[in-house]
C-alpha cells in the first residue's frame, strides 16, 4: 500500500489528468464489453460467459486485418463486423437453444466455447503474446493537457466509444426496432403475437452484443497484448461492471465501467498489489447498499 503516493497524485493536476485518461480508457473498453453482456442478458436471458471470447476474437481479427491492409479503419471494422457475424452463427447454431435455460447449463455450453476458441486461436495465431502496431496516424507524442499525459489514441478511443454508447442508447429508445427489442425482452410471446419474428430480433440483438465485444477487442489491440485467454480477465471485469450497474441496464453499465476504470487507474498508484481486490471490495460495498446494482430494478 502506498497512500502517500496516492495523496501526492491527487494533489497534482497533471497526475490526476493522466490517471483519469488512463482510467477512462480502461472503463470505456470495459463498457463496450459489458454493454453487450448486459444487453444479451437483459433481452435474451442468457448469461454469456463466452462474451470475453468474442472480445479476444475481435482483437485477433483486427490484428490480422491491420497486418493485411495497414488501415486502422479496416481493422476496427473487421474486428466489429467479423465478431458480429461469428456471434450470429454461434447464436443460430448454439446459444438460441439455451435462452432462459438453467444457468449451469449456460455455463457449461459457454465454457466449452471458451476452451475451444482459445485452442482455435492458438492454432491460427499461435500461443505467443502479439501486439497490433499503433496505426501511423496516431503515432505521435502524447498530448499534454493541463500538464497531464494523454496519448492521442486514447482520445480516438473516447470518441468512438462515446459515439457507440450514444447510438446504442438512442437506438434502443428512439427507433421502432429498439422499442420492439425492449418489449420482446419483457414479453416475447406478446410481441410474437403481433407478427414480429422474435427469433430474428434475438439473433440481431446477439449479433449487436457480439459486435460491441469485437469492437472493444479491436480497439484494445494497439494498446494491450493480444493473447489466447485474454477473454477471461475482461469477462470477470465485465461481470463486475454488469453486477454493479444492474443486470440488463446499459446506463448502469456505463456508470459502473467508468467507476471500475478509475478505481483501477488510481488504485494502481495507491494499492499497486491490490488493484484487483479493490474492484471486488467496491462491488461488495455497492451491493450491500443496493443489492440490485446502481440501475437495477430486480435481482438477477
Amino acid at each position: 500500500m502506498d497512500l502517500g503516493e496516492l495523496a501526492a497524485c491527487m494533489g497534482s493536476l497533471p497526475c490526476v489528468i493522466t490517471q483519469v485518461s488512463a482510467g477512462l480508457t480502461i472503463g470505456l473498453l470495459l463498457f463496450l464489453v459489458a454493454s453487450g453482456l448486459t444487453l444479451i442478458f437483459g433481452v435474451l436471458g442468457l448469461v454469456n460467459f463466452a462474451h470475453g471470447t468474442l472480445y479476444m476474437l475481435g482483437a485477433y481479427f483486427a490484428l490480422s486485418a491491420y497486418e493485411l491492409t495497414e488501415s486502422f479503419l479496416v481493422a476496427t471494422l473487421a474486428g466489429t463486423l467479423g465478431v458480429a457475424v461469428f456471434g450470429l452463427l454461434m447464436e443460430r447454431t448454439l446459444f438460441r437453444r439455451i435462452y432462459g435455460a438453467d444457468v449451469l447449463m449456460q455455463l457449461l455450453v459457454c465454457y466449452a466455447v471458451i476452451l475451444i476458441m482459445d485452442d482455435v486461436v492458438k492454432i491460427v495465431w499461435g500461443g505467443d503474446f502479439l501486439k497490433m502496431d499503433m496505426p501511423e496516424t496516431f503515432r505521435r507524442p502524447p498530448l499534454l493537457i493541463g500538464g497531464g499525459i494523454v496519448p492521442l489514441f486514447y482520445l480516438v478511443l473516447f470518441g468512438i466509444t462515446l459515439a457507440v454508447a450514444l447510438l446504442l442508447a438512442l437506438g434502443m429508445s428512439r427507433t421502432r426496432f429498439g422499442r420492439t427489442v425492449r418489449a420482446a425482452a419483457v414479453n416475447p410471446a406478446m410481441v410474437a403475437s403481433l407478427g414480429v419474428n422474435t427469433s430474428f430480433v434475438f439473433a440481431a440483438v446477439f449479433a449487436v452484443g457480439s459486435g460491441l465485444a469485437g469492437l472493444a477487442g479491436a480497439l484494445s489491440a494497439p494498446i494491450r497484448s493480444v493473447v489466447p485467454g485474454a477473454g477471461v480477465s475482461i469477462l470477470i471485469e465485465s461481470f463486475i461492471v454488469t453486477v454493479i450497474g444492474g443486470m440488463g441496464s446499459i446506463g448502469g453499465a456505463l456508470a459502473a465501467a467508468l467507476l471500475i476504470g478509475l478505481t483501477r487507474s488510481f488504485g494502481s498508484i495507491g494499492f499497486p498489489l491490490f488493484t484487483e481486490g479493490l474492484m471486488f471490495l467496491m462491488m461488495a460495498a455497492i451491493l450491500l447498499v443496493k443489492p440490485s446494482g446502481l440501475a437495477g430494478k430486480h435481482l438477477a
Binding site: 425492449r182 419483457v186 403475437s193 407478427g195
Partner: peptide, 24 residues
C-alpha cells in the same frame, strides 16, 4: 405455425390479461 406467422396471416389476438408493454 409459429404465432408470428399466424399473425402475419391476418389474425390478431387480444389476450384476456391484456399484456400491454408496461414500460412503453
Amino acid at each position: 405455425r409459429k404465432p408470428y406467422r399466424i399473425a402475419r396471416c391476418g389474425v390478431a389476438y387480444v389476450p384476456e390479461d391484456r399484456q400491454v408493454f408496461p414500460e412503453h
